[in-house]
């Protein structure tokens, strides 16, 4: 119920026709959501939602982001992704599904790629986080960023920061000898091949379907033919 009501209020304050059209949709969605909320009451704990905002526990955490030490006091529920985007305003890292299924939130922590949406910020005390902003800048791009531009490894670009962070880590993983599902011989060092790149990049979804160009970019950086 509260969800629906809030949405309705916001709707009434809207001005332009375009926004009005959008928000009508919002009312419909909000209406449906409020019905769903009512049905849920007997199953869930209906009371918890109301005063939680005031009393939510917080915790302090300090970690390094792109070479700079950052100290934060956060609601314990804050994901690393939300800490980066909402608190440190590093909005290069994207929120796609928020459930670890799409890879848009991929960052590199202590040298390893992870889904920043599926980890709590407070669990990263002392860690070294590298985001797309830390890999390179428009003036001084990382080789992988450069290759994505050269090979047109994106259309809308939303998944790209995650793709690039993942790609950088993938080449390190192959170099470190970490096997994948398509590695033929478990006891031999894996090689950079088209199949290896595709398999290892499967945790990064691109709705535009720029995959061939993404593989070309990664192959280019690795110095192999796609």
């Amino acid at each position: 119920m509260p969800i629906g009501k809030q949405k309705q209020k916001r709707t009434n304050a809207m001005q332009t026709p375009e926004e009005y059209e959008l928000s009508r949709r919002g009312v419909l969605v909000g209406g449906a959501a409020s019905v769903a909320t009512v049905t849920l009451v007997p199953i869930g704990t209906a009371t918890a939602a109301t005063p939680a905002a005031k009393t939510s526990p917080t915790a302090k955490v300090a970690f390094e982001v792109n070479g700079t030490m950052r100290e934060l006091e956060l609601d314990t529920r804050t994901s690393l992704l939300d800490a980066l985007r909402e608190h440190l305003h590093l909005t290069g890292t994207k929120k796609g599904c928020d459930h670890g299924q799409c890879g848009a939130c991929t960052v590199i922590v202590d040298g390893r790629r992870i889904n920043s949406c599926l980890t709590l910020a407070v669990m990263h005390e002392g860690d070294k986080v590298t985001t797309i902003e830390g890999l390179g800048t428009p003036d001084k791009m990382h080789a992988m960023q450069d290759a994505f531009v050269t090979h047109d490894g994106y259309q809308c670009g939303y998944c790209t920061p995650g793709q690039i962070c993942s790609a950088v880590a993938v080449l390190d993983e192959i170099k470190a000898g970490i096997p994948s599902h398509v590695t033929a011989d478990l006891t031999a060092a894996p090689q950079v091949t088209n199949m290896e790149i595709r398999e290892r990049m499967s945790g990064n979804i691109c709705r535009c379907g720029a995959y061939p160009n993404i593989v070309a970019a990664i192959s280019d950086v690795a110095g192999v033919k796609a």
Partner: peptide, 16 residues
């Protein structure tokens, strides 16, 4: 064990 692990999840998830 190695084969089963790399057949599951994604690289990002297996790292955590």
């Amino acid at each position: 064990v190695s084969r089963a692990l790399v057949a599951g999840a994604s690289g990002q998830l297996r790292n955590k």
